[in-house]
Simulated scan of single mutants.
Amino acid sequence: MSSPCDPENAPAGDVGAALLAIDSRLKALYDGRTESGPEQQQMVDQFAASMGPTGFDELLDGACTLIFMFMSWLRAACESRDKDVIEHAVPTLVATMRMMPRTFRPEVIPTMAGLLIAAGTGLSPNLWRAQYGPWTSTEMNPLEATAVLLADHINRLAGDDHDFATRLITEALSSAE
């Protein structure tokens, strides 16, 4: 039975730009930096200024596509071990979100958990979220941080390979072309 939140109905967005942003945050995290340096902030500001009227929506859809792809990979990895991806990934990620109150205000955690659950059950996170109205400005940083946490979780599962999640996506994009 088809769902209105079926990934086939979802725009992929600018996955490359979203991956660049997530990879940049991961590198900062692994280098021990908790905040962006001036060079990185300048690059982000220049990138934001270069986006056209639909660029931000494309980036937003791209981030949701990354969450879907990461959760799909996790689902396949869990199923090969007779585990449930929701039971495996969501509690750990939500616990981490709760430890980051400046990034994840309590009211956005259920939305971010819902995105993970939607993706973990094979639904499009952006179409699932669209049911509840437009994205809010308070959800933007948590959305990016959710994708970063998910990528970091995958990197840790891959034996602390800091580039595994990024390679996973770039290889999938390369094979899709």
Rank of each mutant, 00 (worst) to 15 (best):
L74F: 00
E58D: 15
A48L: 15
K27G: 02
Y132N: 04
L143Y: 08
L168I: 08
I22S: 02
C5A: 14
T65K: 11
A113Y: 02
A49H: 08
P11Q: 13
A18M: 03
G37M: 07
G133D: 03
L157H: 05
A145E: 13
W135S: 09
S50G: 12
G32Q: 06
T92M: 09
I86S: 03
A145K: 09
S3E: 07
M69V: 07
S175Y: 12
T96M: 11
D61R: 12
L26N: 04
A145S: 15
P110D: 10
I86N: 05
P7T: 05
P101G: 05
S175Q: 15
D6S: 14
D61V: 01
R102G: 04
K27C: 01
G52T: 10
R102Q: 14
P110Y: 02
W128T: 07
S2C: 05
S124P: 08
R102K: 15
L116D: 10
G62H: 14
F47L: 09
L66V: 11
L66M: 11
A18Y: 10
S72Q: 06
M71I: 02
E177R: 12
A49W: 00
A10G: 02
V15Y: 06
R33C: 06
V85M: 05
A145H: 10
L123E: 14
V148K: 01
H153V: 00
F164P: 02
Q40V: 10
A172M: 12
S3K: 10
D57T: 09
R25M: 04
K27V: 11
G32M: 06
T92K: 15
A48N: 04
D161V: 00
L66C: 08
D45V: 10
V94Q: 13
A130Y: 07
G114T: 09
E139A: 15
D14W: 11
T136I: 00
A147S: 12
L66H: 11
E177N: 13
V148E: 06
D152G: 04
A49Q: 13
L74G: 02
F47S: 03
D160Y: 06
A77I: 01
L20D: 11
A172E: 14
V15A: 03
S80N: 10
P101Y: 09
S2F: 09
N155Q: 03
M69L: 12
M43R: 14
R81H: 11
F104S: 06
S174C: 08
A21W: 08
T34Q: 12
S24Y: 00
L149R: 01
T92C: 07
D152L: 10
T138S: 14
E177C: 05
G37E: 13
P142Y: 03
G133W: 02
D152I: 01
R75K: 15
D82N: 13
I154M: 04
E171L: 11
L149S: 08
R102D: 11
A49G: 04
A145F: 07
P101T: 02
R102H: 13
A113T: 01
V108A: 06
D31H: 05
L74N: 03
A165M: 10
D84R: 07
V15S: 04
